[in-house]
Amino acid sequence: MRAPSLRTRLASRGFDGTTLLVLPGLAVMLGLFIYPFFYGLADSLMPKEGVWYANYANFFSDPFQYRTIAATLWLAIPVTIVNLAFAVPIAFRVRLMTRQRLLTTILVLPITLGTVFVADGLLTFLGPQGWFNRVMILVGLFDGPVKLTNNYWGVFASLVITGFPFAFLLTLSYVTGIDPAIEQAAATLGASPRQRFMRVFLPLLVPGLAVTFCLAFVQAFAVFPSAVLLGSPAGSTRVISIAAYQAAFEQYDHSLGSAIAMIMGAVELVIVLLVLGSRSLFYRGPTGGTKG
C-alpha cells in the first residue's frame, strides 16, 4: 500500500484549493493591519530623541497628555452606560411591536450619517438660539439659554445620538433572538413580569449585553470629530484620539503619535477584556430555543 499523497494528507487537515481562497484577503489584512501595527509599535519605541521608552515616559509624565485618558473614559463610560441602560428596556418593549421597521429605520439614520454630520447638526440644534434651548425655556425647564456646545455636554449628546441607536439595534437583535416561548413558559409557571426579566431574560442576555457594551464602548472611546467640533478640544474634551492625532499630524512626530495610538488601544482592550471576562460568570450557550 502506498502512503497517501501530500495533497490527500493536506486535504484531510482542511487544506485544499478552496482553503487557498483565504490567502488574498489574509494578505491584505497582514499588509494593512498587522504590519502597520508592528511598524507603529516599533516606531513608538524609536523616539525622536531620548531613550527607547521616551515617548511613553513623556506621555505619562505630562498632565496635558495623560489626562486625556481620564477625559476619554469620563466620556465613554458614562455614555456607554446611559446608552445601554436606555437600550435594554426600549428593546424589550419594541420586541413586542409587530412593525418595527419604521422605528429601526429612523434609528439607523444617525449611524449612517456619522459623527461629523451629527456634530454639525447639534451645533445648530443645541446652540444658545437652537430649538433645544428654546423648547426648554418655553416649557420652563431652563431660565435662559444654557451653553450645551463646545463643552463636555455637546460631545456627550453627540455620543448619545449616534451611540444609543447602535446599542439599541444590537440589543434588539439579541432580545428578539430569545425564543418567546421561553418567556411564556416562565409565565405559565407563575413568574411575574419582573421575575421573568430577572430570572430568565437577564441571565440569557448578559453575554449579548457584554458584547454590546464592548462594541458601544469602542465607538465612544474612539470619539474624535465630535470631540473637536462640539467639545473644547483643548480643555475638558481633549480626548486621547485628539492627542494622538495632534502628535502625529500637527507636530509631525509619528513616533509619539504611534505611541499614543498604542496606549489608546491598550486602555481600550483592558476595558473590553474586563467586560468580556466577567461574561464567563454567566451562561453562554444558544438562547434561540433548546431544540436538538
Partner: peptide, 20 residues
C-alpha cells in the same frame, strides 16, 4: 484577525498605517 479591526479604535491602527 478579521474581528480585531472592529474591536480596536480606528485611530489606533489608522495612525501607524497612515505613517506607513
Amino acid at each position: 484577525l478579521f474581528l480585531l479591526p472592529l474591536l480596536i479604535p480606528p485611530l489606533t491602527y489608522g495612525i501607524p498605517l497612515a505613517t506607513v
